[in-house]
Every structure is written in structure tokens, then in C-alpha cells.
């Protein structure tokens, strides 16, 4: 017989024991572990998904912030450029006005220098002309320049027209009735009396005539009241010379300026 009843029963019992043992030691544990792992993996994946979403959000946020910053930066840059341009314009304007002022001051200084030089030149020229004239007169004609001046002055007085005489008299002070005769040199008594006589002839003898030495005249003689004078001196000749010199200076200085401008360019 192929089937042994004792063996069958024993095998059934054996198999039941095997089921119990394997269930206890293998299946329950392994299945639990597998389920736990599956759950853990699911949780982890969920977590990862959440983390990914958060990261995505964070990324979006960062991107937005970066764009904002970029925009702000651009704005600030534009503002800074604008400010810088404005500042530059202001500075240029300032510099230009300063330069203009300097130029003006410089021109004024030049003009002052020119004026001073001309004054000095005039003075010097007068003296030179006087000395030369004096020397020429004494050498060639044996005459003194001063005498010739007085002679001529007297002739001038004598030549005055009626209207000129009236004008002159009118300016003599009513109360004081004074008249000055200024000369660059001391007059001799003879000459003084001669001049007094001529003046009395012209304007009458009611006025008091004073003589005075005035070095400002350089070389010459004049008679003056409060508001009017009759003079005969070398300065009258020098006015023309001064005009010529002024013109010449102006031309020279303008030429120099042009040259400098070209150099700087």
C-alpha cells in the first residue's frame, strides 16, 4: 500500500506545525517589515514631493526677489546716471562762470596796468619833450623855454575874443574875487608883473591875482578860477600821442590773446 495512515497523520501534524512555525517566524515578520518599508517609502516620497514643492516655491520666490532687485538696481543706476549728468552740468557751468570771472579780472588788471603805464609814459614823455625843447631853444635861439611859454601865454590872453573874456570873468567868484596863475617853475618878479598887467587888461583890476608853483603841470602855465582855466602847456600836445599808444596796446593784447587761444585749442 502506498498510503500509510500513520505517516499521513504524522505528515498532517508536521505540516500544521510547519505552517505555525513559518507563520510565526517568517511570514508575519517579513510581511510586516515589507509593509512597513512600503509605508516608509510612501511617506518618504510624500515628504520628497512636499519638499520639492516647497523648493519650487522657494525658487519662485527667489526668482521674484532677484527680478525685483534687478529692477531696483536698474532704477538706481538710471537715477545715478541722471544725477551724475546733472552734477557734471552744474560743475561745467560753475567752471565756466569762474573762468569768465577770471578773464574779466584779468582784463581789468591789464587795463589798469595799461592805464598806469600810459600815465607814466605821458609823464616821462612830457619831461623828455620839455628837456629837449629847453635845450633846443637855448642852444639854437639863446632863449629860455619858460620865457617863450610866458610870451605865448600872454599872446593867447591877448587874443581872447570878447565872448571868451566874458565867460572867463563870469566864472570868477563873486565874493572872493580871486584868480590863480599856476606855473611849473618859479616866475621872476618882472614876468609876474607883466602877467598881472595883461590879466588886468583882460578882466579888470578888481580881482586878486595869486601866483603858485605847481609841479603837476610839468612844463607850462595856466590861469584858473573856480570853474574855468586858460592854460598853455606841453600836455596839450601829448593827448594825441596817448591816443595812438592806447590803440597800439589794444591791438597787441588782442593778438596775444588770439595766439594763446590757438595754442590751447
Amino acid at each position: 500500500m502506498l498510503i500509510d495512515s500513520f505517516t499521513v497523520i504524522a505528515q498532517i501534524i508536521n505540516f500544521l506545525i510547519l505552517i505555525y512555525l513559518l507563520k510565526r517566524f517568517l511570514f508575519n515578520r517579513i510581511i510586516k517589515i515589507m509593509d512597513d518599508r512600503e509605508m516608509q517609502i510612501t511617506d518618504q516620497m510624500k515628504d520628497a514631493e512636499t519638499a520639492k514643492e516647497e523648493a519650487q516655491k522657494e525658487l519662485e520666490e527667489q526668482r521674484r526677489i532677484r527680478e525685483e532687485l534687478q529692477e531696483k538696481w536698474n532704477e538706481m543706476l538710471a537715477q545715478a546716471k541722471k544725477d551724475a549728468r546733472k552734477k557734471r552740468d552744474e560743475l561745467v557751468k560753475d567752471a565756466r562762470s569762474k573762468i569768465d570771472e577770471e578773464q574779466k579780472n584779468w582784463k581789468e588788471a591789464i587795463l589798469k596796468q595799461q592805464t598806469a603805464f600810459l600815465r607814466d609814459l605821458r609823464h616821462l614823455s612830457c619831461e623828455q619833450v620839455c628837456q629837449i625843447s629847453r635845450k633846443v631853444l637855448s642852444d639854437l635861439a639863446g632863449e629860455k623855454l619858460e620865457n617863450q611859454l610866458i610870451e605865448n601865454f600872454l599872446v593867447q590872453l591877448g587874443k581872447l575874443s570878447k565872448k571868451e573874456k566874458d565867460d572867463f570873468v563870469r566864472f570868477i567868484g563873486k565874493d572872493e574875487q580871486k584868480l590863480w596863475v599856476n606855473s611849473s617853475f618859479r616866475l621872476t618878479k618882472e614876468k609876474e608883473s607883466e602877467i598881472r598887467k595883461t590879466l588886468e587888461d583882460v578882466i579888470g583890476d578888481k580881482v586878486e591875482i595869486n601866483f603858485k608853483v605847481s609841479p603837476d603841470l610839468i612844463c607850462g602855465i595856466e590861469t584858473r578860477t573856480e570853474g574855468k582855466k586858460i592854460s598853455w602847456n606841453i600836455e596839450n600836445y601829448l593827448d594825441g600821442l596817448e591816443e595812438q599808444l592806447k590803440k597800439a596796446f589794444t591791438e597787441i593784447s588782442f593778438q596775444e590773446l588770439d595766439v594763446e587761444k590757438k595754442k590751447t585749442e
Binding site: 504524522a10 508536521n14 506545525i17 510547519l18 512555525l21 513559518l22 517566524f25 517568517l26 517579513i30 517589515i33
Partner: peptide, 24 residues
């Protein structure tokens, strides 16, 4: 029966060894 026990013992031993320290 003897060889059944052998098989059972091997199965039990493997299960016991394998599930002694399970980790997830």
C-alpha cells in the same frame, strides 16, 4: 517523516536566522 523534519528544520532555521534582525 525524518526527511520532512529535515526540511522543516532547514526552513525554520533559515526563517529564524533571516528574521532575527530585520530592518526596514
Amino acid at each position: 517523516i525524518i526527511f520532512t523534519w529535515v526540511v522543516m528544520a532547514i526552513l525554520f532555521f533559515i526563517s529564524w536566522m533571516a528574521t532575527k534582525n530585520l530592518t526596514i
